[in-house]
Design a protein around this nucleic acid. Sequence first.
DNA 1: CATGAATGAGGGTTCATTCAT
DNA 2: TATGAATGAACCCTCATTCAT
Lengths: 212, 212, 212, 212
Amino acid sequence: MPKQTFFNLNSSKQNRIIDAAIAEFGAHPYLKTSINRIIKKADISKGSFYQYFNNKKDLYKYVIDQVSDAKMKFLGEKLQNYQQLEFFELLRELFIAGIQFRKNFPRYSEIGDRVLNSSNKDLKNELYAESKPKSNDFFEKLLLKAVQEGKIDPEIDIKFTAFMLTEFSVSIVNYFFETHDTDNVDEIMNYVDKMLYIMKNGIAKGDKNVTN
Amino acid sequence: MPKQTFFNLNSSKQNRIIDAAIAEFGAHPYLKTSINRIIKKADISKGSFYQYFNNKKDLYKYVIDQVSDAKMKFLGEKLQNYQQLEFFELLRELFIAGIQFRKNFPRYSEIGDRVLNSSNKDLKNELYAESKPKSNDFFEKLLLKAVQEGKIDPEIDIKFTAFMLTEFSVSIVNYFFETHDTDNVDEIMNYVDKMLYIMKNGIAKGDKNVTN
Amino acid sequence: MPKQTFFNLNSSKQNRIIDAAIAEFGAHPYLKTSINRIIKKADISKGSFYQYFNNKKDLYKYVIDQVSDAKMKFLGEKLQNYQQLEFFELLRELFIAGIQFRKNFPRYSEIGDRVLNSSNKDLKNELYAESKPKSNDFFEKLLLKAVQEGKIDPEIDIKFTAFMLTEFSVSIVNYFFETHDTDNVDEIMNYVDKMLYIMKNGIAKGDKNVTN
Amino acid sequence: MPKQTFFNLNSSKQNRIIDAAIAEFGAHPYLKTSINRIIKKADISKGSFYQYFNNKKDLYKYVIDQVSDAKMKFLGEKLQNYQQLEFFELLRELFIAGIQFRKNFPRYSEIGDRVLNSSNKDLKNELYAESKPKSNDFFEKLLLKAVQEGKIDPEIDIKFTAFMLTEFSVSIVNYFFETHDTDNVDEIMNYVDKMLYIMKNGIAKGDKNVTN
DNA sequence: CATGAATGAGGGTTCATTCAT
DNA sequence: TATGAATGAACCCTCATTCAT
């Protein structure tokens, strides 16, 4: 966590620092990330940086938290309107909202992608201790409710299925960008529906083979 | 590719170098990886290193290739015995073989994990140009055959489903190691079966809800 | 340009660095020039060096600029006393001043020679974008004035002639040091006069064959 | 000088080596020049190289000699046809021949330019001990003959004037390429004529101000 | 709370030359 | 005569962090 000194700063300066950090962490893999560039962009001194943060990782984790919170807030707001939806429709809206977030806050997503794809296990685990569960929890709650409402197969392992859904939300984006050069992220819904089709006919209770 | 000079070396020396590289690339994310440590461990001079390889990435890609080839060879041998199996049983044997490989060649797997999880997009794309497709192709062929034999739902997008399976083969291992401290990789089959259950009831044609 | 950090240093330290750089750049062709030697001589750390300068070329260009400015300042001061002189006498004084500069600041001249004789075209062009024109401009102005005053042949191409004079100011020194082992740079005036004789009877208007 | 072993090679192999060396020495400043690239291009082994030449400089000097000899031979042949010409016309033909050589053997000229512009004094002096005098001698002989025939001012210092002409032959080319982007080397004659005009009216005996 | 100079280990890479075969 | 593996010093440059002011 940042030191108290950081939070004592006026929010304009805080924002300058966070913005610079987001740009840097989004633009390079963590290990290539440079504090020098961050302080230069944020226009603060090196000494100040170390008065606000314990070290590079401290800032990194804080930024990830901010981004993660922003996404959860964004998704939460969207989903309030869909509480009455059936599980799979809600799931679909969730993916749509995720893609909207991506379009609205591309730099936030760059960081998210890097975190989820990072090969730095030690760092990743430290981060996952918080951030990944947030997503898993999200799906777990939805799944639990759907099971209780008799909408989906009670035989499934909820925790594991939540994990699968989280992995997919990342994988699909990866797949899309690995196989498409375009920026048209709407097309990605095509793959989301394919995935949902598979998931639905797999985990939905009874009445299989009915697509939607 | 390594230079010819590398292949001219006696195999004992080649092995010393590759072993040192595997250890290094398995122990650190690529960017933290050190040629100095590799040559020290392999007991060769810096000048020699650059007579064998063009640069660090050259060695890295070569090692990945070796590992990838070893895995494909290992899986290929295993699967020859199972050609007559039904699709989902074959799929299950495939995962079992993958886990066996992991147990038999733990250091190879460390590298494999790093590659698949790398956040260095440029490098990743360079490597994937070969390695990821290998896995995708594998699943694609199986899926195509199964569709032709009327074993699975012909509505699915084969390429995309192959991608999903590849992602799962990585994700499940990740999930296992994130949620378990033990080295007992056999327990992982529990998750494999859960995943297969979901996949099967999703993509298998007709007669849904029959587990096995 | 050096970074601001360099100019923030006390001048004693700045001088130590510049002196070390002058010695190094004067003693070796640019490509053989070593930052390691410079920082060792200047007694600063490698890290510090790169806090002051962007890279080796940055320092090099700065040193060249300093030397060039010093020479222009030196010549400018000398020439203020000779403004009323006739063109060829002024030209002669200019050469004398150049030689004096050489005697007074031998290490500056070593660098100057290297720059003018460098075979590194890319670097040279970058430097010449400023430094060579300084000399050419100098001669151009003198020539233009002399033409306007009717002292020299208006048929000549002023730019080209200025270039010739610049080249000579270098060549003559080269010639002298190639054919003499002595340090007695006064003797060089002998060649200057021979050159001026040729130039004069070539470009002076009318009344040729009158030496002085 | 190359070792005897080099001259024992069949001329095809000798040529391969010399051609590779010419390409390399023409493409980079001497210090950036790489034996590795030369042997690779010439398709000989490293060991062989050091059996043919004592070291890099040995090869370099030999190549320069070859190039220099080729130029002298080329000029010599041209000039046999012009022996009856008046001094300044001969001089002009000499420059034309020089430019022709440049056009016909561009790679030879690249090396020549690098040598004449080299900032590596030690190496340069070693080379000049032979090559530059060749050019100076050439002009000296012409000048001496012209003086004896009463064509030019006997007051001039022949050695020094020969040096000036040599410098000019280099400078003019430099000037041309610094001020022109085109490859049209014919245009260079414009500058040659300007230079000759200056030289002529300077060193020609009597009857000044008669251009041609 | 702010500053920014200082650090030095470490990074990857190049190179001409030697020498045993 | 031919080979090419081996060498290791030197190259330029980056970095996160410390600390005196």
